[in-house]
Design a binder for these strands. Structure first.
Lengths: 229, 229
DNA sequence: CGATTAGATGAAGGAAGCTTCAGGTTTGGA
DNA sequence: TCCAAACCTGAAGCTTCCTTCATCTAATCG
């Protein structure tokens, strides 16, 4: 279950009896509810506890502090999304490039837009926590999966793949965020998916068609002036 | 100077004498300094005032509250970046598609990565303030500029342009954010620029090559199953 | 050179909310 | 049944920080 690699955010105590297992889950769900109801800025531990039907003290028995609680929520959310991405990558390994792209985009978009409200609310949490570290950890797994998938493409430049994977992830994340923060109308959701198909498809095909350089790959160490695409 | 369209964030008093003009600027700069020094979460009005060499009371004479101050900082930052983008669009109107893409990417990347530390620190501010509204206002201007530029491309589907422009902006913003939050090494900066050239170039060329549909544009109302890119 | 306006001060009020802990209740096994 | 461990309670301590305002100094003008 992906050990939290951040100090001070580990659960304080692990539930033993069934009663407390339910309590912990109730607190977790309540955190999401409160997030949706009043937003990240006005989310307080007391409010979360009240919503969960327990007292604050109980909350602090399982989460050492407010951050830890929010961290757990964010973590589960991200895990869900990138698990979907990883699976799509695994399943598309032997397929043609265009289908890889489509599968990747569809997996991400579907997962990310499943619970529009939650996705949106969690952007604020991400900032509070300095979620960058968590995000980068989760992204890294997705990145590896994408690289593994793309390595199956014949003739592709392998050394560009890690950064290309990061580009794909951050492009999908960035555009989705934009759509979410703008309200995520049904039309926008549809457009997002279709344009991402175009965008990622075109990018990957161009990457695959890139000529093999003699000595200087795309990520070159020796500075030569850039001239055009 | 782009009237702040958000209530309660307007300056409380406008400097009249030269002395106070300097004070206001000092406070503004101090806010950035403190942001870089201790981060958004630990930025307090007292700290900012101290760094500016004035007392808290003075700060509150010009900024009605802490948010207003941070809003001003974020606003100037975004204005700077998207002014560069707008200019690039204006200058590339008659050029070929590939050069449009390159100019757009270069303008954005150069502006955004100019002050890596500031860009990075402001992500937290964006969240505190619900900067989404501000961002969308600034993005809208950039979007219009991009659309105007792309409309010069012969044979391109005009009705896809607004969303395409949003895709370009949010792609650039998303990938840049990723690079910034990962530390923005020189290598990553270089890769970002070059991959954005590939990505945006490929996307735009594909958009331009899109066949004109009979009745159903890309944003179609009647659901037909998707089959491949 | 007064009078008036602009600008600056910073101690203190006050709100908000995280976290603790001393003491109660429930559970489950012996 | 009885006890120890698990679990729960919630008032209160404590910290942090935003914001105000009565008061003081500096600039400007007739």
């Amino acid at each position: 279950m992906a050990q939290s690699a951040v100090h001070g955010l580990e659960p304080r105590k692990t539930p033993v009896q069934a009663r407390s297992t339910e309590t912990v889950e109730a607190i977790f769900e309540a955190a999401i509810q409160v997030l949706l109801a009043v937003g990240s800025a006005r989310l307080t531990t007391t409010r979360v506890a009240a919503r969960a039907g327990v007292s604050v003290g109980t909350l602090y028995q399982y989460y050492p502090n407010k951050q830890a609680l929010l961290y757990a929520v964010l973590e589960r959310h991200l895990e869900g999304i990138f698990a979907a991405v990883e699976q799509a990558c695994r399943e598309s390994c032997s397929k043609p490039l265009a289908q890889m792209s489509t599968a990747l985009v569809d997996a991400f978009v579907t997962a990310k837009l499943q619970r529009t409200d939650v996705s949106k609310a969690l952007y604020a949490v991400h900032a509070d926590l300095d979620g960058a570290r968590l995000v980068s950890r989760v992204h890294q797994r997705a990145e590896r999966a994408i690289v593994a998938m793309l390595e199956c493409v014949p003739g592709i430049q392998k050394d560009t793949l890690p950064f290309a994977a990061r580009m794909l992830i951050s492009t999908m994340a960035g555009t989705a965020r934009h759509v979410l923060e703008a309200g995520a109308s049904p039309a926008a959701k549809r457009d997002l998916r279709e344009h991402l198909h175009l965008l990622c498809g075109a990018y990957l095909e161009r990457l695959a068609a890139l000529p093999w350089p003699e000595r200087a790959p795309l990520t070159m160490r020796n500075a030569t002036p850039k001239d055009g695409v």
